[in-house]
């Protein structure tokens, strides 16, 4: 187990030695780079990283440049999880055989993938990695849409959002299905740790990443990543949108230990109506037309029900 990095305050955290360079091609206001820096700065461990095909990958490793100052691998859209699992297997093999070049260093394995790569096309690969018990962390950069290819729906796209393959129109309010509960599915693999994080709650993020890196076995993290381009908000408002998401409980922050013990890790002092979260984003604009307004109440009811359910699961301690 590596030594847990001590982080006193945001200033110190934000100026930690970076292993992810600011020189990348991500959109201004993209939360991906914020989350990646938070994850990498949370630890002093050596990191072996992977990304699935997606925004993060295409924007950070365009030959002959790289934004990564730690070993990093990309194979395809669906297999970022298995790429890092393979590397972890090699680490275990070389450790046994006494062939690690730096055997005394604490080395951790982390894969990043978008919600398309994780909820959809790479779902089976992640499930396999979680089931097999690799000592690795998988982090979804969940922007609820196929952003890299121009905003097509994924199974993380929430109901009522307008995406290019589920557009709002004269006869449609946009996406018809609600978002898949990926954290619950991954927790059902009985992995030691799974959690939701958000970039605006950096202390919560650091605590969870540090916990995740220090448990033995597979860890699953779902990180909300507001997408200025596809959610349609001003690039300067990324953190404001994140605050609305966590404070309206559209995106509740919690963790699940060993697949069953659920802890809510953030309770907003002032709960914000879901309507404010929806109103701040262009992808939900059409919901405010008279014919779809009923959707807003349904949204609030659903968010309330999920919050209630999380609280009951937390109390139950089972």
């Amino acid at each position: 187990m590596g030594e847990v990095k001590k982080i006193k305050n945001l200033k110190e955290f934000s100026t930690s030695a970076d292993r992810f360079e600011g020189a990348n091609l991500l959109c201004p206001g993209c939360a991906h780079s914020i989350i990646v820096r938070e994850v990498l700065n949370a630890t002093n461990d050596d990191l072996i990283l992977a990304s699935s095909t997606g925004c993060l990958e295409v924007c950070t490793a365009v030959y002959p440049y790289t934004s990564w100052d730690a070993s990093w691998i990309h194979i395809g859209f669906e297999n970022g999880s298995t790429a890092v699992a393979g590397a972890e297997a090699m680490y275990q093999a070389l450790k046994k055989k006494g062939r690690l070049k730096q055997p005394d260093r604490s080395t951790k394995f982390v894969a990043f993938g978008g919600d398309g790569a994780s909820y959809d096309i790479g779902f089976q690969w992640i499930s396999g990695c979680m089931e097999r018990g690799h000592d690795m962390m998988y982090i979804v950069l969940d922007n609820e849409v196929y952003a890299n290819t121009g905003g097509q729906r994924s199974s993380a796209t929430p109901i009522g959002a307008s995406a290019t393959t589920s557009p709002a129109g004269r006869k449609s309010y946009g996406e018809k299905k609600n978002k898949k509960d990926m954290v619950a599915i991954m927790a059902a693999h009985n992995i030691p740790y799974s959690a939701q994080v958000a970039p605006n709650k950096w202390k919560d993020m650091v605590k969870k990443i540090q916990h995740g890196l220090n448990v033995e076995g597979p860890v699953f993290i779902n990180a909300m990543s507001p997408c200025t381009t596809e959610w349609k908000f001003d690039p300067k408002d990324t953190m404001m949108i994140s605050d609305l998401a966590t404070d309206s409980l559209v995106f509740p922050l919690y963790e699940i230990i060993d697949g069953h013990e659920l802890n809510i890790t953030y309770r907003p002092k002032h709960k914000v109506p879901v309507e404010e979260y929806l109103a701040a984003q262009g992808r939900f604009k059409h919901l405010f037309k008279a014919e779809y307004k009923h959707m807003i109440k349904e949204w609030q009811d659903r968010v309330d029900a999920t919050w209630e359910s999380l609280q009951r699961r937390e109390e139950a301690r089972v």
């Binding site: 691998i73 194979i75 298995t82 790429a83 393979g86 090699m90 093999a93 062939r99």
Partner: peptide, 19 residues
């Protein structure tokens, strides 16, 4: 692993790791 695609994916990750 859980499929041949994952088998070669794992092989690629392992090989890139160095062995």
């Amino acid at each position: 692993v859980e499929s041949e695609h994952a088998a070669m994916s794992g092989c690629i990750g392992a090989s890139a790791a160095g062995g």
